[in-house]
Design a protein around this nucleic acid. Structure first.
Length: 560
RNA sequence: GCCCGUGUAGCUCAGUGGAUUAGAGCGUCUGCCUUCGGAGCAGAAAGUCGUAGGUUCGAAUCCUACCACGGGCACCA
């Protein structure tokens, strides 16, 4: 409907004034109409005419052309055009809302990389956030017709592994892989994470430790390069690495995430080194103090090291390797990388360097960044010393709060966390408050889930077969309002997908639930003379809520 | 120091060029009154949209400067 209107308005401008203009249709306050446009204002400037007069001629034209779908076109204020749909057109739009999602990624291949945990380390609240948001974005693109490959990247080699392995060897009093058997399966992740903290502290506290850790770090690279599963260090490394992956898998299963591919740095590193060395010869990268760097200054960026003076790839080269591998494996139309915004300027340098030798790859790459998770009410997150909030701590806090709030329901508690994470616009830090997130009142996940369950229970009550709401129906005021809101869904979906901003879905679902409650307060459904029509409304409403929650990765229960 | 980001009611956030009274939720206060699941509805109080300039017919939204907070700035990830 919006598309047809846009075309009609553009056509009218062409016909009457012989100009091509970009038409933007917005959703004004309901009192003004269903759609509005400011073309007349734009044209007024362009043509040097009075915008109101332009508006009047456009309105007249549209009234003639769109008599079937438009009941009113008026000029308001300085020259806004307000367009009101007929009940019939509105009904058609509303009924199709939950199934007519603009296919703006049709036939497109998209690689979505997010979550990115490091092996040997614990998953913290930030991983949970990025995973939830990344899933929602991937869901949006998929629903818009795209083929999405969800991939994960993580550090299974690098200094943090050196630190951890050093501490593991110290804890086991030598390179004794057989002693790993004494660590209970359910505490492996915590055990390794404790070693990482010890290793990090040792590295910072004493220079002699630094040499030892650098040495073991280099040996780990050798273990990986040789695919050495036999030496004591090799056995320690591969066993612990597998523990990490098992732990990640269990966590992702718990939150409903799934990645089709995992790129470990040990794989992308050598690819990156190869590429960086090739491009070193071509002058993209250059040597500096024994390291290989990319100088970003000509582009307003800064210089970063890609291969260090020991000849080992840094994160930069590993990311270059990752980009090349994704490109070769998927030939994507678009690659989306979602990380914490601390990486924003770092990533700019990496992508700028790639742009020098693979411009089409760089052009198709979007780095999307989000803020950090701050916990309301005292739970603090600080890295380094190990007093971080783990991802599971957040889930447990939500679950505990949900029990306190009176519903003992794990899926609802998970939905509450997801909703709380997604509802704010991506970019700034978010404050997570477990109590608020599970609240049954206000803008929360459980509120929307409840709204859905309530609508389904109404539908379950009727003995009528099907609804008579269809194109051609005439509507009462309250019905019209609700239907208008339902009909906005495809537009909100398109906006969220185009901008890669899933929070628009949250905002909309909440407004939709409010619109329904307003309707429901005043209008009876079951045993009302208009029951047959209103059932169609409730159905469309419930389906839209369900679809929206699905995009957010949140279950829409029929009962709560 | 340079670069990037953020700054909207007591708190948590929408709104990122349009129309009046800048919107929600929580919290505070007042009604409805327990309904087809009230986990609701209606209303009130609460904002110099960080500050000061500028562009525009029109600015929370764009530009400039400044302030505050966060982040980044070579061999960590």
């Amino acid at each position: 409907m919006k598309e047809e209107l846009t075309k009609a308005v553009a056509g009218a401008c062409k016909e009457l004034f012989d100009v091509d203009v970009q038409i933007e249709l917005t959703r004004p306050d309901e009192q003004f109409g269903d759609y509005a446009t400011n073309v007349a204002l734009q044209l007024g400037k362009k043509l040097g005419k009075n915008p109101r007069e332009i508006g009047e001629s456009l309105a007249e034209k549209l009234r003639q052309q769109l008599a079937d779908s438009v009941s009113q076109v008026s000029v308001a204020g300085p020259g806004f055009l307000n367009i009101k749909l007929t009940d019939s057109a509105l009904a058609e739009q509303g009924l199709a809302a939950s199934v007519s999602r603009p296919q703006i990624y049709k036939d497109k291949v998209v690689v979505a990389e997010y979550s990115d945990p490091s092996a040997f380390k614990v998953l913290h609240a930030g991983h949970l956030y990025t995973s939830v948001v990344g899933d929602a974005i991937a869901n949006l693109i998929e629903a818009a017709g795209g083929t999405v490959h969800r991939v994960n990247f993580g550090g299974d080699v690098g200094l943090h592994v050196g630190k951890t392995m050093w501490a593991i060897v110290r804890e086991l009093a030598g390179e004794h892989p057989e002693k790993l058997g004494g660590i209970p399966a359910d505490s492996r992740a915590d055990w390794m994470s404790a070693r990482y903290v010890e290793g990090t502290n040792a590295y910072e506290d004493d220079e002699s430790n630094q040499a030892a850790i650098a040495h073991i770090n280099k040996r780990v690279y050798q273990v990986v390069a040789d695919d050495d599963h036999d030496s004591p260090l090799g056995q320690l490394y591969w066993t612990c690495r597998q523990w990490s992956y098992d732990y990640f898998d269990a966590f992702y299963a718990r939150i409903g995430s799934h990645f089709e591919k995992y790129y470990p740095e040990s794989i992308t590193g050598p690819v990156g080194v190869k590429v960086v060395r090739e491009q070193l010869a071509k002058g993209v990268y250059e040597e500096s103090d024994g390291a290989i760097v990319f100088k970003g200054e000509p582009y307003g960026l800064h210089t970063r090291v890609f291969i260090n003076s020991q000849g080992l790839p840094t994160y930069e080269a590993k990311d270059v390797g990752l980009s090349m591998m994704k490109w070769e494996e998927y030939h994507f139309d678009r690659s989306i990388i979602i990380t914490d915004n601390a990486q924003a300027q770092y990533m700019e340098v990496v992508i700028k360097s790639i742009e020098q030798f693979a411009p089409e790859l760089a052009r198709g790459t979007t780095h999307l960044t989000h803020g950090r998770v701050k916990l309301a009410g005292g739970m603090k997150m600080s890295s380094r010393k190990g007093n971080i909030v783990r991802a599971v701590d957040v889930l447990e806090a939500a679950y505990a709060a949900s029990k306190k709030a009176g519903f003992d329901n794990q899926p609802a508690a998970l939905g509450a966390v997801k909703y709380a994470f997604i509802r704010s616009r991506l970019g700034s830090d978010i404050v997570y408050d477990p109590e608020e997130s599970v609240s049954l009142e206000g803008n929360s996940g459980p509120y929307i889930q409840y709204a859905h369950a309530r609508a389904r229970s109404i539908l379950a009550k009727t003995s009528l077969q099907g609804s008579t709401l269809k194109q051609g129906s005439t509507l009462e005021v309250g019905e019209r309002s609700l239907l208008r809101k339902i009909g906005e869904y495809p537009e909100v979906f398109e906006k969220a997908t185009t901008e890669l901003m899933p929070h628009h879905i949250c905002t909309y679902l909440y407004e939709l639930a409010q619109a329904f409650n307003r309707f429901y307060e005043k209008n009876r459904v079951i045993d009302d003379p208009r029951e047959a029509v209103r059932l169609g409304l409730v159905q469309a409403y419930a389906d839209t809520l369900k679809d929206g929650l699905g995009l957010l990765g949140i279950h829409a229960p029929d009962k709560m």
